[in-house]
Every structure is written in C-alpha cells, then in structure tokens.
Design a protein around this nucleic acid. Structure first.
Lengths: 239, 239
DNA sequence: GCAGATACTTGACCTGCATCAATACAGAAA
DNA sequence: TTTCTGTATTGATGCAGGTCAAGTATCTGC
C-alpha cells in the first residue's frame, strides 16, 4: 500500500465521465476534487479491503481490475463481481460500518480513496452529486438482480455468453475493442461468479470455439460472431 | 389503487424503528413526516409498480407482503426478494428513472409513498437521514450478495434452510413467533427465489419434515429443530 | 536451458435436480 | 353439498453439470 502525497484532481481526470456526474462545470468539478483524499496503489493479488475491515471510504478505480467476493464459514467462495476503471467499490461497507466482502486486485491497480464522510458532506452541498451517488448504488442493486437472474434461471452457455457480452461492452465503453479481450481472471473465478465449476467454464469456452463463435487462447478471447452470442443470451435485453 | 388524503405521520408510526433512523427526537421526527406524501393500498395480486414504470417514489411497507421480480425476454422470471412491513422498496428505480422490476403484493398491503425528491431534499437537511438512506441501499446490496452466494454455491437443502431461517428471523423482529410462520408465497415463488423448481422445494420441505426438523402443512410451517436447520445452513454466520 | 508451480483442457463417470406425469388437497363459488 | 381452480405432493426417469483424473500449456526463477 502506497500513499501518494500529491493532490489528485477529478477535474482533469480522463475517467470523470465514468465516475463523476456529467454536465458539471469546471468550477463545480474543482470543488468536487476534495472528495478524493489520496490515491492508493494495490498490486496484483493484494486486497484493497477485506471482510470485517472497518469501513471509511469508497474507492474509484483509476487503473487495474478487481474482483469482489464473499465466503461462507465452510470456506466456499462466491465472486460477486468484477470491477474495472471508472467503477466504484466499497458500497457494501456502508450498512454496518465494516466491509462485507473482499476486494482483490486481479492486476496492478490504482484507486482514488474517497472518505465516505467527504462524499456525504459534498452530497449535501451538491444535489447533482447526491443524485449521482444514489444512482451508483441503485445501479449496483440492478446489476445484482441481473446476476440473480443469471444464477437462478440460466444454463451454462447462457451464463458465459452474458458474461462475455457484458465484459466486452464495458471494455468498449472504455475505448477497448468490441471484439477482443484479455481476461483478467482465472476460469475458477469466472466459474465462481457464474455459479459453475471451472471445468464447465472451460468446456463451454471450447464449445463456443468449436462452433466458431469465439476464438480462445487461454486468457485471450476474440468474439467472432457477436450476434450468435447475443442469440444465446443478451444481457442488455431484459423485459 | 386508493389514495388516502389524510396526512400520515412517521412520528407516531409503530414501524418507525424499522424504517426511520433511530435516535431521532420527537421534533426531528415531525419534520421528517413530510417525507411521506400519501399512503397507498395495494390488494393481493396487484402490482405496486412494474418494470418500465417511471420512477418517482420509494415505498415503505406498512402492512402486507411483497415480492419483487425481474424477467427475461423469453419469459423466465426470477424473484429477487420478498419484503415485509418496515422494509423499503423501489430502490431499483433510481439509476435509470424507471423501475427495473415488478413489485407484487402477495397479500393485501399498504405502503407509505415517499417521493424520492422529498427523500433527497430531506437528506440534504438531515445528515442522520442521509446516512440512513445510504445504509438502506447498502443493506440491499449486501443482501443481494448473500443471495448470490446461495444461488451460486449452495445445495437445495441449504437454500431452503437459509430461506426459512431468514424469514423467521425477520418475522421475529416484527414481534411474530420465532418458530411458527405462514408462508405468503407459493412453492413456485420460493423456488424462483432460490433457483430451484417447485417440485424440489416441495420435496425438500417433505424431507425436512420426515427428519423431524420442521412440520409443514401447506403454507403453515413450524420449526421444530432450529439448530438442525442452522447446522444445514445458517445465513447469519458468514465469515 | 530445466524444474516447479499454476492454470487450463479434456475425458469418463456420477449425481442432484429438472422434467414429466399422476394424484391429492384446500378454498371459492354455485 | 359438489364442482372448479389453483396449489402442493410424490413417483419415475433423464440429463446438465459436477466430480475425479490425466495430461498439457504457460510462466517464473534458477
């Protein structure tokens, strides 16, 4: 964990469209700079926070890739999400003032530390920010509902299809290719997220590959027939 | 849908410990009365809101019992939760200004309508309320993570056990028995929530009954050996 | 280069739950 | 009371995905 002392600024961060409310004036943005206290580097494999840690801050991911996961007493682990640049993590800690899951960096990462007291104070002052914070939390709730649908109703192929389409769509929003991606997580982590075993993940990848829908080489994936994937299951088109 | 015109008051509502921040003075509570605009009755089988409806308000359940559910294009339905008196629903609507699931009354119900604009305005004025709103949303996120664990990792018996223990614990917090309950939902709805078919729900009930852990007669359930249930799976004891 | 560790793939077999189907039960209406 | 309708139970059978196991690929450090 490294603390950097130079002042960080949302106002000239190229991710601000992703993590800040849109349509703010330069002036307003500068006032919001104070929400972020510091930045923190988290190297691959390290945790940003753990279940049980006391909650003080939300984190905006600047670079890198995270997973969040919960575990039961008997050691079974459930990955609850994968997060990338511009996304906010730590919301789980608000209810009980301590974190309720682990956030692990899947590649070297840097986050903006936003003490929650600052967030709340600024929210009271700027209705736009207040609304934005509410939207972010609500978005997480809606995402979780989608995962429930996936886990409760979908079959292996549908799950993996939805997973790939969702990932590539979010990467695309960040300027990456819409058809090619490098997975940051293992088959086991994908499986945990999707409620299936790593062997099934692997087999399903192979099946898609055999059918010419995707090309896979370990972590590298190329989507050859996006429409075929969407026909299997399109996460964007819920009723 | 009935709109009642008399002014409603949180300040003398016997559910305020469940839905309002604790430790407010009588005076503060009276100011917060303005959060609630009206009450609304929803009779059994009717929806409080539907997927796609424009979002304007949160709802505090005064009496009755709800389910929330999402569905995919092809008609598969996923129950995302069951809500009872004192709980807040509608949070899913904040992100996109329209609701993202259906809320259906499973028995005749009455809710307090809290226009979200009021909630936000009051939140700016009362930091305690602001924190409370954040906690409620965060609690929902944590609950959802628990459901993901259930759906992703647990077997039928563990799911049903966790479900029963959770229900009875929430009912107990509302003054009901800790060992006896009447289910407000069908086997199919339980199954949808827990990611299993209604036949499996029924069989699992029968199995628990054969083992003397519970007594079941249709919707009426009596928990004979709570410890045995907890040994199967205790939702309260996550790591 | 090699050795070891970790991640991934693939095959063979097994099982928990789904599916299909028949029957029973309970509440509502006639 | 009977009939109707929605709900619940229980049995028989099948299969998607889990489990176990062997082998391969990739990366790291020496």
């Amino acid at each position: 964990m490294l603390l950097e002392t130079y002042k960080v600024a949302c106002s000239n961060c190229n991710l601000r469209e992703l993590c800040m409310p849109i349509g703010l004036s330069q002036e307003e943005l500068q006032k919001l700079d104070d929400v972020v206290a510091t930045r923190r580097k988290v190297s691959q494999g390290e945790t940003l926070y753990r279940n049980g840690d006391s909650f003080t801050s939300l984190y905006a991911i600047r670079t890198g890739f995270f997973k969040t996961c919960v575990s039961s007493q008997d050691g079974r682990e459930q990955v609850t999400g994968f997060q990338m640049a511009g996304e906010i993590i730590g919301l789980d800690g608000i209810t009980s003032d301590h974190h309720n899951c682990n956030a692990v960096a899947l590649e070297d990462a840097e986050v903006c530390v936003m003490p929650f007291a600052n967030v709340e104070e600024m929210s009271r002052e700027f209705p736009v920010l207040q609304r934005h914070v509410h939207k972010i939390m609500s978005r997480e709730i809606v995402r979780d509902q989608g995962v429930m649908m996936l886990l409760g109703n979908m079959r292996a192929e549908e799950r993996l299809s939805a997973f790939l389409l969702n990932l590539v769509q979010r990467l695309n929003a960040r300027g990456f290719s819409r058809s090619e991606l490098v997975l940051r997580m293992t088959r086991e982590e994908i499986g945990s997220y999707l409620g299936m075993k790593l062997e099934t993940v692997s087999r399903t990848f192979s099946k898609f590959s055999d059918e010419g829908i995707i090309e896979v080489k370990q972590r590298w994936v190329k989507i050859l027939k996006p429409d075929a994937l969407k026909r299997i299951f399109d996460p964007d088109s819920f009723c």
